[in-house]
Design a binder for these strands. Structure first.
Length: 509
RNA sequence: GGCGCAUUCGUCUAGUGGCCUAGGACAUAGCCCUCUCACGGCUAAAACAGGGGUUCGAGUCCCCUAUGCGCUACCA
């Protein structure tokens, strides 16, 4: 056990998105590698943008990814509370200290006033930075304003010409001259702290040794260093992670489709696959490997091998990685996953859902006989999974593929005349197929025997098996693309298979 | 505008001065396998932003330019 401590500090203004998840994951990975502790802190100091319900959603997303925390708002810890909204006294205390030391000052300018001055500067083609108007106030003036109860914010005093420097684990040495930093506000007039103040204090108080966060904070680091210095804090080690951009190169946002971790879960991504993809954004396992498990990542992970270039998010690639994970997933485990999702889906589905998916209601009295379907699911899923695990990129893909095993199909209209102008006697072939299936003994009704009979049938009729298969596929699935037909017949069982064959025969004759 | 950061196939990346005729993966195209669709296998096309240096030698080091991104909020 050592003293390495990292933190992930989301603000509950939206869902946990891909970029934040990557940050959380890299923190977690580093903690695992170093056998340190991972702290979860909620940065909810902006009451206007804060959405309470987002906290649970973010926590759920992290849990789904198995990114676990050692200290946090829900489980506590020695350095709590872990929500900034509950730490206000602490920030006030430090702000007061800075005020007393003259390292900060009260600013009575109103936001409106500041905005006005900003605009005036812009009109003159200048750029506004705070002019220290309120730093020039003398004690009497300040006391007078305080007596009048004029609201104020607190600004930090940015030193004149000091070089602020730090070494980032990814970006290397960063130097900024303090005069380019404004006297930024640390406490708002509503008495709540701003990010650069509260984050610095909490990181210090929570004994964070390594701050690992997005590159968008690289420019904030010197400001926080100013806070550290004013308060005589030892700063932590900093690591900034390259940004994740949308495919267009813009900052990833809701406009770019699915970016929340929640939506990936709902689409049927496996958490391991999502993490594998995330690890590939700004980091490489080695020169060749794309798929690797978490244990291997933890073994290899170092902050120094993270690269600097912003990465564009590639949906095709995460899909591909997910498909590999599905393919490699243990069949029985995958079956359990699908069973659960499928049952949930079926509990929620209605008749219009059946229609949209080319399925038929059981009967008008009881359009979806859920009990029967549930039983069917339990019996058949283990046999079905091997047919679909190499064909699907998501769990949702699997669901869509297997409806016809559990519901009757509705033949689309264009299927009726499919063989009209072809030199194939579809109806005749179906009749022969029916008797072929009928000849099989109950105990022998399996894929191999079914195949033998049907291949013979093609041969007898002097057609290729591909041609026969097309007829059977249309009858069994109502479409030209399907899962393999011998297995379909075996899993469907003799009775249902024969029903479909005769239904189709009736349709085309 | 100021400050900071970045720039290798369309995309994610390998590359830390000679192993680079620049490697892998996704996507794309073709072939093979095949009952359709997938899987799998093989092959193809595809990149060092531009310009100057340093060096016997530069994708790799330095400078300039261009482009992109971030910060510049009483957002985080």
């Amino acid at each position: 056990m050592n003293n390495i401590r990292v933190r992930f500090a989301p603000s509950p203004t939206g869902y946990l998105h891909i970029g934040s998840a990557r940050t959380a994951y890299f923190n977690w990975l580093f903690a695992q590698k170093q056998k340190g502790r991972f702290i979860l802190r909620i940065e909810d100091t902006d009451i206007s943008r804060h959405q309470e319900e987002m906290i649970d959603i973010i926590l759920d997303s992290l849990k789904w990814l198995s990114i676990s925390w050692d200290e946090g708002p829900d489980i506590g810890g020695d350095f709590g509370p872990y929500r900034q909204s509950e730490r206000n006294e602490i920030y006030q205390e430090f702000a007061k200290k800075l005020l007393d030391n003259k390292k900060a000052y009260r600013c009575f300018c109103t936001p409106e006033e500041l905005e006005q001055r900003r605009q005036d500067s812009a009109k003159r083609g200048e750029f506004f930075s705070y002019d220290r108007k309120c730093l020039k106030l003398d004690e009497d003036q300040i006391n007078k304003k305080l007596e009048e109860k004029i609201p104020f914010s607190i600004r930090i005093v940015s030193p004149e010409n000091k070089i602020i420097s730090f070494t980032d684990n990814v970006y290397g040495k960063i130097e900024v001259i303090s005069s380019t930093i404004d006297d930024f506000i640390i406490i708002r007039s509503n008495k709540l702290p701003t990010y650069n103040f509260s984050a610095a204090i909490d990181d210090y108080l929570m004994k964070i040794t390594h701050v690992i966060r997005g590159e968008d904070h690289l420019s904030n680091t010197p400001k926080q260093l100013l806070v550290y210095e004013a308060l005589n804090f030892m700063p932590p080690s900093f690591t900034h992670l390259p940004m994740i951009l949308a495919k267009s190169g813009e900052k990833l946002s809701k406009r770019h489709g699915a970016i929340s971790i929640e939506s990936y879960r709902d689409e049927g991504f496996l958490p391991e696959a999502v993490k594998n993809y995330l690890a590939l954004l700004g980091w490489a396992f080695d020169e060749k490997t794309t798929i690797f498990d978490e244990k291997e990542i933890i073994k290899k992970f170092t902050l120094g091998t993270i690269n600097k270039k912003a990465a564009k998010f590639d949906y095709e690639k995460i899909l591909h990685i997910n498909s590999v994970y599905i393919k490699n997933h243990k069949i029985s485990d995958l079956a359990v996953l699908i069973k659960n999702r499928f049952k949930k889906r079926i509990s929620e589905m209605d008749v219009s859902f059946l229609k949209e998916n080319g399925l038929k209601a059981a009967d008008t009295e009881n359009p979806i006989s859920r009990e029967a379907v549930f039983e069917d699911i339990e019996n058949k899923m283990d046999a079905i999974i091997p047919l679909v695990n190499k064909r699907a990129k998501t769990l949702n893909d699997i669901e869509k593929m297997i409806y016809p095993f559990f519901f009757d199909i509705a033949y689309p209209d264009d299927i009726k005349n499919f063989f009209k102008n072809k030199n194939i006697n579809a109806a005749g072939l179906i009749q022969q197929a029916e008797s072929s299936l009928n000849e099989i003994k109950d105990n022998d009704f399996n894929r191999l025997i079914i195949e033998r009979g049907l291949r013979n049938l093609a041969e007898k009729n002097n057609i290729s098996f591909a041609e026969l298969a097309e007829v059977l596929r249309l009858a069994l699935w109502g479409r030209t693309v399907s899962l393999p037909i011998f297995e379909t017949i075996e899993i469907l069982g003799r009775k249902k298979s024969l029903n479909r064959l005769s239904d189709y025969e009736e349709l085309i004759s």
